[in-house]
């Protein structure tokens, strides 16, 4: 088990492109950290640097107490699960799982016992003598997991491991991976572009965009107090409503409507963020929303409308009756986030 420390870790490619801007953070022992962001944000590069598959251009990376910048991937005491599983196609499941142990000079009976143990844990015992091509996607994913856990590494790295699976299997595997990580207590870094995976699995989320870490925090922190308009719009489906507004005298206005008040010492134009579920139809509501489309999602409904000429989405319960046209809407307490009009940073 180990903690991971990054100190100004940076990645610059030979062509001058800076894929990861200097990043510093700590991952505690046993913590499950999810790196999330859109494609090309540098999250995979970050993971690959930690794995040793990419050189670190600058800064220091520590796994445990050891600086590992120049250590071979095989000697970093890590295990990685790849997006397309990366199983060895010519080896049986048994050999796939045992390959990492075989090269660490562990005797045969121990390897066999460990492979059996991992296979039992992952319900793979009956597939041990099959080749990867004879397995389904979910089973291959399990073999990839088995290959990682059998080694007892001090750090698990996951590179979008569920993105090749169909939605139903993905939900199931999500829970299995999380449960497995809890049981083994191994520090884990998990890369995904799927904000639902990030929210559900993480102890802490690191949101990245354009090579920069936008926010580090627990799922609740990231969701309820996004550090920037990027985080606000990336985390959550449907995303947070971001409206052009202004503050004067502590009153937050969107158009002519007062949507709340603030104790922050700001005046002038701001970006106002409101989560769709923090809006609710109410007879005495201070907002007038002009409803244009209602999306029926079963458990709830998405109401799309306009306020002061700006698009807005509201999430309401399945039993809430609503019609087209202007309706009064209330905002829940403390539900308004304010962002800098220019930089997008939280105020």
């Amino acid at each position: 088990m180990a903690q991971v420390t990054l100190d100004n870790v940076r990645k610059v490619y030979p062509n001058g492109f800076e894929a990861v801007k200097p990043a510093s953070y700590n991952i505690a022992d046993g913590e499950f950290v999810v790196l999330v962001g859109p494609s090309g944000c540098g999250k995979s590069t970050m993971l690959r640097m930690i794995a040793g598959l990419e050189d670190i251009s600058d800064g220091a990376l520590k796994i445990g107490d050891r600086q590992v910048n120049k250590v071979d991937p095989a000697d970093r005491d890590i295990a990685m699960v790849f997006q397309n599983y990366a199983l060895y196609p010519h080896m049986t499941v048994r050999k796939n799982i045992g390959y990492g142990l075989k090269n660490r000079k562990i005797d045969k009976s121990t390897i066999e016992a460990k492979v059996q143990e991992a296979a039992t844990m992952l319900n793979l015992t009956e597939y041990l003598d099959r080749k990867p091509s004879q397995l389904s996607g979910g089973q291959r994913q399990r073999v990839a997991m088995g290959r990682a856990i059998v080694r007892d590494p001090s750090l698990f790295l996951f590179d979008e491991p569920l993105s090749n699976l169909d939605a139903k299997l993905r939900n199931q595997m999500r829970i299995e991976i999380k449960a497995l990580q809890r049981r083994l207590g191994v520090t884990s870094i998990y890369v995904t572009h799927d904000q639902i995976e990030a929210m559900t699995m993480a102890d802490r989320i690191i949101v990245m965009n354009g090579g920069i870490i936008e926010q580090i925090g627990t799922p609740a922190e990231v969701y309820h107090s996004p550090a920037s308009t990027f985080v606000a719009s990336f985390m959550g489906a449907p995303p947070m409503n971001l409206l052009e507004g202004r503050v004067d005298g502590g009153m937050i206005r969107v158009g002519d409507t007062v949507v709340g008040n603030t104790t922050l010492a700001v005046t002038g134009p701001v970006t106002v963020g409101i989560r769709p579920e923090d809006l609710e139809p109410s007879v005495g509501g201070q907002l007038r929303i002009d409803v244009s489309i209602i999306e029926e999602l079963g458990a709830h409904r998405l109401v799309h409308g306009h306020i002061a000429g700006q698009a807005l989405t509201m999430q309401i319960g399945k039993d809430t009756a609503i019609g087209d046209g202007p309706i009064p809407v209330a905002i829940k307490n403390n539900a308004v986030s304010l962002f800098d009009h220019q930089t997008g940073n939280r105020l």
């Binding site: 040793g52 095989a74 890590i78 790849f82 290959r147």
Partner: peptide
């Protein structure tokens, strides 16, 4: 596949 080689890189020094 590149990832297969990378997996081997982690499994075998």
């Amino acid at each position: 596949p590149r990832s297969v080689r990378e997996a081997a890189l982690i499994d075998n020094r």
